[in-house]
Design a binder for these strands. Sequence first.
DNA 1: TGACTATATAACCATATGGTCATATACTGA
DNA 2: TCAGTATATGACCATATGGTTATATAGTCA
Lengths: 122, 122
Amino acid sequence: MTLALTDRMTELVAQRFRLLGEPMRLRILQALEDGELPVSDIVGALGTSQPNISKHLQILCHGGLITRRRDGLNIYYGIADPMVFKLCRLVCQSAEDNARAQLEELSAPSPGRTRKSAAIRR
Amino acid sequence: MTLALTDRMTELVAQRFRLLGEPMRLRILQALEDGELPVSDIVGALGTSQPNISKHLQILCHGGLITRRRDGLNIYYGIADPMVFKLCRLVCQSAEDNARAQLEELSAPSPGRTRKSAAIRR
DNA sequence: TGACTATATAACCATATGGTCATATACTGA
DNA sequence: TCAGTATATGACCATATGGTTATATAGTCA
């Protein structure tokens, strides 16, 4: 079945992909994979400034990818839906496949292409 | 199993997500879902300028998401790996869930939260 | 209340990104 | 070769984004 997204839905989906299109945010998500953490721990784990982490946490939180819970002075963030990791794995896989394909393309002995030949690219 | 991506891999994955984080590019991919098309058709279908489409096509092509094939004056672009639509469906689903959850949050009769309560947000 | 800690936010800067218009390039056919 | 068509690219602009530093806010505890 085709996607056939409405304009609004296309915007939403793009927005969600954009959340994941930032290395620092992916690192934050990975840091939270084993369970929720207070901001200070995330900062410690990722080696960037606390304001920067806070900013990304807010973006992820508003985007609905992480949860937020206060406990005394600390604020704990956690993964809202482990599905994100499924997404990451899929993309990871396809990125690997792509890299492999490019390697083959480069080391191919001759222009005797295998199939469909996705290469013109001037 | 945890993700445990290397820095390089994290960059690659983020880069790939960023490709999908643009409404116009998502629309292009959707336009190609039923089969490859020449640039002019894509332009016709999406109602933006030809240079703009060409730019996005190049980005998608370099990112390995679409294929490119010349036939005479026309250049046909096509989906490189239908997996992208699987990704979109997953994200779409989760975006819907999220929207629904936010609605419930808003229309919840009282602060008698159900579970874990992901809402502080000042 | 006041000192202290954890986190958020404001102001700012440099760079990236998406769009536009004008023009170049690549191919076709007379 | 030349006119014509399809696509790509360069130059440019406005805005978005990620980062930094300084400071505000919220909660704890003496």
